[in-house]
Design a protein around this nucleic acid. Structure first.
Lengths: 210, 210
DNA sequence: GTTAGCATGTAAGGAGTTACATGATTTT
DNA sequence: AAAATCATGTAACTCCTTACATGCTAAC
């Protein structure tokens, strides 16, 4: 509720912006949105919906119209109110520095099509700087301790390092595309990525969760 | 205390197994160990140390010997007790299915040198299956929803997918190495990864797999 | 008509963060 | 001797999960 780490708020508002939905379905969409695969539980979702309802950001759809439509309480379909839409827009177009934290970034990114290029660049570049700071600290700590580590620990750190490096490259490509023609290589998802800067990259983001 | 998600217990015992340390220093080591870079707070660490102390798994080092040594309360250096060592060994050699969750996996991996090859294979393979399940669900949900997603969401899912694929390949290489001569390619960290299945590629690996 | 799965919720508790409070040691 | 930073700790609060409790709806 507060103003705190409410990734959920943004995510729920964003999904309901696409189309009205009931909680059960919302959860499924949420799970693929929030860092691949955290199984968000109902114990989190339903109270959150309640809170959004209380704030007047969402309302039950179908209320007031046909009384026989959803009638006897089964699913409860929610939709955004006018304030909800405004709220979403302001959240998504005014990304604080929190927007480049691991999980928030994913959510912000997923709603990029509702923002302007300037906002997108801001988020992408913020995220990249964040990761580059990490790389920095990572590399120094690796050289600092390189002697006294066994092979397994080194292998682990190496893999983590490469994962972050890969994500930086990914971001760089997105930033370049965004700066050039807006997202040329994203415009037609069916075209098999013609020639562009080889974004097929193989290396991956670090472990999921973060 | 509980038996639950005590990643911390394993991590702390493991680090103290290497050498005695005080909390402040422990935290730094912990942060590079626990999924690259979570800044674990003192509010978590110190109570955890207290709990381990209460369980008799660690003790204050230097107590009983020279009373003037650490004397006036500055740092408190902890070391493992005999029970602590046993506990660590049993945790590390009997990995439950929890060992392939995102964060626990890292910690287990970091202490691989204290285990036997059978345990290592069990953990690596368990982790790989876990990720492959994810890929499965990932891919089905991607085809299920492929039409109604905008380019940004697709780009995000694609990147996530490739990240997981990359980790699976990494695990596969480790498993193969483990099965062949034990970790031949890990034995000499200075050798620049001779010929093996090209896992070195820091930049834009040619791989293209997927 | 009963099982299985959809759908909504609540209560208890775990695990961690922030903010606060305090003292010791090192650097300038 | 002041400032910075090392070091330890506590209290309140947040976010989330687990386990539970309940009812509706579809399939067999």
């Amino acid at each position: 509720m507060g103003r705190r780490g409410d990734v959920l708020e943004l995510a729920v508002l964003g999904l309901l912006h696409e189309s009205p939905m009931h909680g059960y379905e919302l959860r499924k969409r949420l799970n693929s949105l929030l860092g691949a695969f955290r199984a968000l539980s109902y114990g989190t979702l339903y109270p959150a919906l309640k809170s959004l309802l209380g704030q007047g950001l969402i309302r039950e759809a179908g209320a007031g119209q046909g009384p026989a439509l959803t009638g006897k309480r089964g699913r409860i379909v929610y939709e955004l109110t006018a304030e909800g839409k405004e709220r979403f827009q302001s959240l998504v177009t005014q990304p604080g520095p929190a927007a480049w934290e691991d999980e928030r970034f994913n959510v912000h990114f997923a709603f990029f099509s509702r923002t302007d290029a300037a906002t997108r660049l801001q988020v992408l570049e913020g995220r990249r700087s964040r990761l580059q700071e990490r790389l920095e600290g990572f590399r120094t700590s690796m050289t600092r301790t390189r002697e006294r580590l066994d092979s397994y620990t080194m292998e682990l750190e190496q893999h983590g390092l490469e994962s972050v490096e890969r994500e930086v490259r990914w971001l760089t490509e997105l930033i370049d595309s965004e700066r050039a023609g807006n997202m040329t290589h994203l415009e037609d998802p069916d075209r098999p990525r013609p020639t562009g800067p080889a974004r097929s990259g193989v290396h991956g983001a670090p472990d999921r969760g973060r």
